[in-house]
């Protein structure tokens, strides 16, 4: 029992990442009708915003401290980061320690700009072309983004630590009445799950309770009528594209401490996120979220030793297997609507 609960918890953070990427994909597909293969690259860009922010915060200069000597007897060179120099050692350390949450704030304008540039510069010209063309051009863009990142940051994963107070794990099992050390769960993963829930809730609330969201939903349902009513729906859809980019980006920032960013993580998550979107049902936002968590947890449960002994290799294929079964018995996915992507 405790093993299953542990696996469900482990599945939550992966599921959160799937859900956030799939949510953005679905927003783009639902509003603009574009299949965005570059969405994983946006997730990856977010993770590298975290890397960049940390690098900027840890920029340092060298001073010579004449009172101390190094092991050769020369005056010791001391590295001081600029933030420590400017704000004093305590505040400076704090800023560096909290670089990931700070990167989330930095990522919002950055990803909004990237998203807008992508939509205005490229995706806009592909609304009228076939889905295959959209897939191909965004696939090309994903390769380009990935290679640019690889050029600047290299091919190796770059670790980004979480803030100090979230670094440990806590004994989750004790809360539920299990013996000690039965269910150990890292704090940061819990933070990630809470963060994902917050973002997902925020996006839904935004769409549900604001006038802007209402117009967007109306546009998703019937674009022409909304246009006839004199609303510039294209502009709003561009903003939704930027919003989807932000969601993918901050999902990537927060994921950086869990999985050290590397240039191909976008592609790795993209394939799975597409499976998630299709399982959830193309164009259905709740479906994307539901399928994201479902597949994340299933993947995690399938990697339990007892199950692997029973069915070897199940952990490697479970997601794809579920996707195939669902596509065959429920072609529209879990919560898909009629008439979406069926032309």
């Amino acid at each position: 029992m405790d093993a299953i609960i542990l696996q469900i918890l482990n599945g939550l953070d992966k599921g959160s990442a799937y859900a956030l990427i799939a949510l953005g994909l679905t927003i783009i597909f639902g509003t603009l009708g574009v299949v965005n293969f570059a969405h994983g690259a946006l997730f990856m860009l977010g993770a590298f915003v975290a890397v960049t922010v940390r690098r900027i915060l840890t920029l340092s200069f060298e001073t010579i401290d004449p009172t101390r000597k190094d092991f050769l007897g020369n005056p010791l060179k001391v590295k001081t980061t600029y933030v420590e120099h400017w704000f004093g050692p305590d505040a400076g350390q704090w800023l560096i320690d909290w670089s990931v949450p700070i990167a989330v704030i930095a990522a919002i304008p950055v990803m909004a700009l990237v998203g807008l540039a992508m939509e205005r510069g490229l995706v806009r010209h592909f609304y009228k072309r076939s889905h295959a063309d959209q897939i191909l051009v965004t696939f090309g863009l994903a390769i380009v983004i990935q290679e640019i990142i690889k050029y600047f940051f290299g091919a190796n994963p770059i670790p980004v630590p979480a803030p100090e107070i979230f670094r440990g794990s806590f004994d989750f099992g004790v809360l539920l009445g299990f013996p000690e050390n039965a269910i150990i769960y890292p704090y940061w993963r819990l933070v990630y799950f809470a963060f994902a829930a917050l973002v997902i809730g925020g996006v839904f609330a935004f769409l549900q309770f604001t006038t802007f969201g209402m117009v967007v939903r109306a546009g998703m349902a019937d674009r022409e009528t909304v246009t006839i009513l004199g609303i510039d729906i294209d502009r709003r859809f561009s903003i939704m594209f930027a919003l989807a980019a932000i969601v993918a980006g901050i999902a990537g920032v927060m994921y950086a401490p869990i999985n050290s960013p590397n240039y191909h993580m976008g592609m790795d998550y993209l394939v799975l996120s597409f499976v998630v979107v299709v399982v959830g049902g193309m164009g259905s936002l709740p479906g994307a979220v539901l399928a994201g968590f479902l597949l994340g947890i299933l993947e995690s449960i399938a990697s339990m030793k007892a199950l692997i002994d029973l069915v070897p290799g199940i952990n490697q294929v479970i997601i794809y297997l579920v996707a195939i079964v669902i596509l065959l018995i429920r072609p529209r996915g879990l919560m898909g609507r009629k008439g979406v992507m069926e032309d």
Partner: peptide, 24 residues
Amino acid sequence: RTGIYFSILTLAFAQMSYNLAYSV
């Protein structure tokens, strides 16, 4: 299935084969 569903299905099968070839 047609369209993107077909693409995802073939992708899923290929990734399954790849993962299995590496493990079991």
